[in-house]
């Protein structure tokens, strides 16, 4: 990471801590904000957060590793999360899954080479009556069929 980038990131984290406060109860909000902006929480960011919040880096890492939506590894610009829980599964998740994998040429848990999309599974999205459903970043898409899912993915930048 370049020094400039590091400085910017530190500045960003400091700003967030000013906004949310440096109490422990702000940790998740800060992590969410960093995740949203940088699509992951780098080891440097984790240590900066730990330093500024006066906690141990391993505690930050521990919290990140607990929550599915937080990640220490870089992700693509768009994170696609396909629901694999029962109702969506029954409604045809498998077909969507196969089509999406084939279209993007990657498996779930991977990111496209152009960093455009990361594919992930997720548990129940609360769209059980409208399955199969997927989340693209924070937006939810329902009643998917393979073709529709692929078209949606091809449209995102």
């Amino acid at each position: 990471m370049l020094v400039v980038e590091k400085n910017n990131l530190s500045y960003e984290i400091e700003r967030m801590i000013k906004e949310y406060g440096n109490d422990r109860q702000s940790l998740l909000q800060i992590l969410q904000a960093i995740q949203k902006k940088y699509k992951h929480i780098s080891d440097f960011a984790q240590q900066e957060i730990a330093r500024l919040m006066n906690i141990h880096p391993v505690e930050v890492y521990s919290v990140i590793s607990f929550y599915s939506f937080l990640s220490t590894e870089p992700k693509g610009r768009n994170i696609v999360r396909l629901c694999k829980t029962i109702a969506c599964d029954m409604a045809g998740k498998d077909a969507v899954e196969i089509a999406v994998k084939r279209e993007l040429g990657i498996s779930f848990g991977e990111t496209t080479n152009d960093q455009r999309i990361s594919l992930e599974y997720t548990n129940c999205l609360g769209m059980c009556n409208e399955g199969p459903a997927m989340l693209i970043n924070e937006k939810v898409y329902t009643h998917l069929d393979p073709e529709m899912a692929v078209n949606i993915l091809n449209e995102i930048k």
Partner: peptide
């Protein structure tokens, strides 16, 4: 208060680990 070890991941993947 050294803070080297913590529980990492969750569910069946939980283990005691260090930073990263």
């Amino acid at each position: 208060e050294v803070g080297v070890l913590e529980a990492i991941n969750r569910g069946h993947e939980t283990h005691v680990g260090t930073f990263l």
